[in-house]
Design a protein around this nucleic acid. Structure first.
Lengths: 250, 250
DNA sequence: CGTCCAGTTGACCTCCATCAAAAAGTGTGG
DNA sequence: CCACACTTTTTGATGGAGGTCAACTGGACG
């Protein structure tokens, strides 16, 4: 009930807190650490934070890299790709402003996935050792981090449900609804947006083949639920899309 | 490469640290907070920790419950079940000694899944407020928690890959290999064990139907890789099972 | 010994993958 | 600006893995 009725807690949605901008964020940007308390710490220089831009196609980190930094996405969009070792790989998520990258490497000290920018992106690189140290003086930051990681866990569980229980059409409908939600939360139009990821990347993320993704786009088009032409998406019927996710049940 | 070559970092595997038992753990038990430092804090009464047994079929928490406690599994086994709201649901994981439960609710303050015991289980219930408070004096505990959550994220990503890219036979082979690994890490036989979960629960977890699970068990049997009779499993050929996971690639 | 439930096996069908080709963009050099 | 190569997306035709439905098997328990 919850994940469908409250889509902002559903698949890959991330609650973007309406917080004060931190010292590093430019107007129009939000980042994970945008919090007055935390921003103060950043200013005071207690924590090593580096502003960084990442070009389309560039990686923040790759599988096997030693873990030193967490990354707070301030603008643009990333994909994370995880490798199975036999040539197979899968996109495990898309991250945009307000999202955090690298948390899955805290435990193993090594990144288990690639983070690739799909756009001109801006991030803050935050030295993890600094976070560990600073937490004593600034417990809010640790709280923020735990909440973000907990949110990641919940998001991934939604992906697991999508992959484990949904049919192709539902998956795509869910994907579009979630994207729409995320754009809305960031102040962009929820009804009209441009896909930054290719059909291949969508297919990988949704556990299907590129042809099937294409067919499902066409089908949603034919049903009058969306108007999709290549990367340009307009959602025409939210209720219909939501019904589409539910109806294939059982 | 990594997830197959180093199975203990693969699907649902959890590195069980060989640490000193904490004050609450009985001989033969391990828990998440088994750490001399942490154990001391537990003893000193700084953190509210309650020992608790959970009977087969009982829940630790249910979807919608307010979040107050994390649970450290000391013995037995749990499943977490997440609901899609239209009748569909899926088992998102199995947790045994050393694993932690409830972390996905830290962000939203509400549990988004059910945690059900599949056995006579023992857990420590740890008041989350206590963890937040105690972290200042005992940073190791926060570190432990972050690492555990990070490990959860990595585990779930492996599940996402399993659901997104693997065929039915591979999924079951992977499941058995991972279980074996987890038993081994806990000092039990990796070659011979009893499944505590039903075929239905396995099917749900692996995103397939009960009939398919049954067929795949039969197939692995026929191939001489395992000897499975109902819940009693013996692994006859580890290399063969591993090859089975790889071979269906592409 | 019959009932019940979990698991297995069989027969059939559907959804999606696969293979193939056309269509629509994108980029490059003349 | 056009011709040509090349990539990405769409559409079509076909087949196969796994879902569905149904019957059977084998423990567990009264």
């Amino acid at each position: 009930m919850r994940s469908l009725d409250t889509p902002d807690r559903g698949l890959d949605a991330s609650p973007v807190r309406a917080l004060q901008r931190c010292a590093l964020c430019a107007p129009g940007e939000v980042c994970f650490f945008c919090d007055s308390q935390t921003a103060a710490a950043v200013n005071s220089g207690d924590m090593i934070v580096a502003d960084r831009r990442v070009r389309r196609g560039e990686s923040l980190f790759r599988t096997g890299d030693a873990f030193h930094f967490l990354f707070a996405v301030r603008g643009g969009i990333f994909k994370t790709v995880r490798n199975l070792g036999d040539g197979r790989e899968q996109v495990t998520g898309f991250q945009m402003a307000g999202d955090i990258l690298g948390t899955d490497a805290i435990g193993g000290h090594v990144h288990e996935s690639d983070a690739v920018s799909l756009d001109e992106s801006r991030v803050c690189a935050i030295r993890y050792a600094g976070i560990e140290r600073l937490g004593r003086a600034l417990p809010q930051m640790h709280d923020l981090l735990r909440k973000a990681m907990s949110g990641e866990l919940a998001k991934q569980q939604s992906v697991i449900l999508l992959l484990g229980t949904m049919r192709a059409e539902e998956r795509l409908a869910m994907f579009l609804l979630t994207l729409s939600q995320r754009f809305k939360a960031r102040g962009y139009s929820p009804t009209e947006f441009t896909l930054r990821m290719s059909r291949l990347e969508i297919a990988s993320y949704l556990g299907m083949k590129i042809e099937t993704v294409s067919r499902m786009f066409s089908r949603l088009n034919a049903e009058g639920l969306i108007s999709a032409r290549r990367e340009q998406i307009r959602i025409l019927d939210f209720a219909g899309l939501t019904r589409c996710v539910r109806r294939n049940a059982h």
